[in-house]
Amino acid sequence: MAEAVTEAPVVAAERRGGPQRWLPYLLLAPSVAYLLIFFASPMIQAFGLAFTSTTGEWGLGSIRAMLGDDRFWPAVWTTVILLVVLLPLQFALAMAMSMVITSRLRGSGLWLYVFLLPLGVSELGAGILWYSIFVEQGWLNTVLQSLGLIDRPVIWLDYREPWRVIGTIVVAEAWRSTSLIVIILVGGLRAIPRDYLEAADVFHAGPWQRMRHVVLPMMRPTIRTALIVRTVLAFEVFATVIALGGTGTDVLATQANRAYTEYQDAHLASAYGLVILLVSLVAVGIILVALPTRKERGE
């Protein structure tokens, strides 16, 4: 994530000393205080909650209760599988959209606008939208039947067929959250000076060679940022799952929510939260190792 730090250019250095020296710290102070109170302290408190029981004793009681829950491991696997299926699909889609946006096709502004439409869409909104498509008497069956591909409506959201439901969740999430990757990738693509692409053209690189030898290497930091951002968010998928899977499909976030709202157990809910944190950090770690930053050697 460090390369994003350099994205905001510091326009001018304030070199004066004296009374000006404390000004930036004064300006940062409110936001720092706010994040300490409302971000850092609950984060620490989450550990406190997870490692105490409902009676307030320290111990692994809540953790054990979580691991003993029949729904725990299915929730873990569904969460991980969602990510593993979703990420490659999204990156392929996002890359295709970014290429259209940055190509010299007419109306690139319009394509950009269209592809980014889902950017502000909430999980819940997207979940209901895709529910209307996948429901038995919904759009997908209407379209398939009118094309003569099926004889009678298929039950896509069949809770006895978890794979099918997971498939619908993947589609809904791919539709909703690909635009976030698009925005990051387009930023990266636009940051590649046109000279480089033209130099590749002049020096005999075909479209695929240009992609492999010039575009992708230069986009490496961008791709890494996009991967990290998307991975962390994918572990928190929640409302889409409820909208499409009802109470029959569990992921870690729905389990955490259920622990709090139904069982009223903040300790158990925090334990689930920590599992999400843990898998997020592991995934981010894997990405960082798999795509190491080379030393800055940009011009």
Binding site: P193, D195, Y196, E198, A199, A200, V202, F203, H204, A205, G206, Q209, H213, V214, P217, M218, R220, R294, R297, G298, E299
Partner: peptide
């Protein structure tokens, strides 16, 4: 053809040798 660009367009992710050999590598 070959071209020398105004901003040079020397690829930052390749070494000097890889840059010089780029055209032939693409062929």
């Amino acid at each position: 053809i070959a071209m020398v660009f105004q901003g040079y367009a020397v690829f930052p992710h390749l070494t000097v040798a890889e840059n010089i050999g780029f055209g032939l590598a693409m062929r």
